[in-house]
Amino acid sequence: MKTFSEAARMEASALMERYPTRMAALIPIMFIAQREFGHIDEEAEKVIAELMDISPVSVREVSGFYFMIHKHPPGKYHLQICHNISCTIMAAEKLLTWVKDELGIEDGQRTGDALFSLERVECLGACDLAPVMLVNETLYTNLTLEKFTRIIDALKNGKIPED
């Protein structure tokens, strides 16, 4: 059975005190759970529900709605590639083929070693720097094949390069 760490539990308790309703802390607590467990599956939903004293279905309804809540375990490095208008016209589809060539994965897939996963995403709000990619919480901009390869190589070596 999954359990929250003591630090996470305290953080969650503080959040529930912070808003006029306990329910308002659900999304922030979901992010804490995601940090703890990697993704939100049925068991994690129950743990959150128990902690917040709400029904598991209330958690399910919300977790299912938001795209940043992972329903399956992502890779250590979760690549999110924008395929909206500005990135499309600046060759985002090429970027997606580079991922396939380099890592052998497509949208929604994870590499066998669990190091990388790929998700096509909508506009990341960096259209002037297209094409762009988020790796976990780091944004990479103006991507070329050379720059993309350099980033992936660094990540394979455990280094998070600067943009």
Partner: peptide, 10 residues
């Protein structure tokens, strides 16, 4: 003032 973040939904 409380900073609150979304979770991915236009």
């Amino acid at each position: 003032v409380i900073v609150h973040t979304g979770a991915g939904a236009y």
